[in-house]
Amino acid sequence: MAEVEFERALERMFARTPDISDAASFADRVQRRLDRGWAARRLLIGSAGVIGGVIGASQLIMSNLFSRAEAASSESARVLTSSVRQIAPQADWLFSRPAGVETVWVAAGLALLALGFVLTRIIEEI
């Protein structure tokens, strides 16, 4: 038998599926692992999103950022650049608060993590 023929025959022999008795239960075990992994991922995404959202929202509300931003923008509505100049100090003010900075960073980090997961999932879906 020629070398190439033998190699092809060997590949065919390797390709024959062996008869393994617990094939069905093996597939079920893999399926369960997939389901567990998916449930854990969903829980992680949800938790991170909720925690990040709650902390972020509470920080925004407590810092009166909305009212200050609204006031700043209404005062400088004519010129966009002046609005930016008005809002920038507000953001600095927010981050300069000693008690809230770490919390804001934690919230931002968690929100970014959640966003990353969501983006990954969306890319996979696409």
Partner: peptide, 21 residues
């Protein structure tokens, strides 16, 4: 690839033994 784990389960059923072998 669209997230259908049941579809992937069918692939495992088809090819699990070949991989284990």
């Amino acid at each position: 690839a669209a997230g259908d784990r049941q579809a992937f389960g069918e692939l495992v059923r088809r090819h699990g033994s070949a991989v284990r072998g």
